[in-house]
Amino acid sequence: MAVDETQRTYDHPLYQHVERMPGLSVALGNIDQLLTWGSANSLWIFPMATSCCGIEFMAAAASAVDLDRMGSIPRGTPRQCDVMVVAGTITVKMAPRVKKLWEQMPEPKWCVAMGSCAISGDFYRDIYSVIPGIDTFIPVDVYVPGCPPNPEALMHGLLRLQEKIRMLREGKLTREELRPESPPNLNRPAIGRLHDPERDPLTSEEQTDSAAGLGFGDNLNLARIRRPRPTAEPRPQPGAEPQPAADSDEESAP
């Protein structure tokens, strides 16, 4: 049975940037647009899959979600890749390797922190061998929350990364705004453990606030989600010792 295709029309997205004239097509516009179109749609992924999130990354690369359809192909070597997806807990033993692999990737490069372990260390945050978030030693562009995030969430994160790449090229955001230094109070776990009587009830709110403002500065109006703080009584401090965060000066992250 023959299929009637006379009514079918398809325009490649590139033609949006092309002026058509009879007999020839001329692309008017800057080469930057072309490069942006190219780099946003061929994000080759270097899966830095260490633990549980790696399995969900595999599920995202498999048939149900299929990252390939947006041009994202997982590759085994950092030298061919544009995006490093850090999926899983990074430990003290692994961190130097991650740093090295990140440095081996050619510019322009992006980093996606997938899952709460990569974002903040999750409940392993306080443990001697775990890095409290990879943004303490490599810059992160997109945070995909979840434990582990669904494959769809990773897909969404990559779409947001594409958006970011376009914004960068179009000059809506500068590189510094897109990838700021991580806030100093996230560099080191200074939050008391749950059953610790010394734990400040306000620390969790501070953490939420700084996480909400993370990476965007004043570009996004996040003030509306900030709750009004109750004025807390200063806790009686034995010997007026400040929080353990005070010694973070000498042990600041690289």
């Binding site: 306080d126 775990v130 409290p132 303490t136 080191r188």
Partner: peptide
Amino acid sequence: LMMPEDWEGHPLRKDYAIETACPPWR
């Protein structure tokens, strides 16, 4: 086996604090 070769201390001992810092990484 688990910790780096140059690690100091044995983590599961009772006198080892869980949040022991390991500069420069944490």
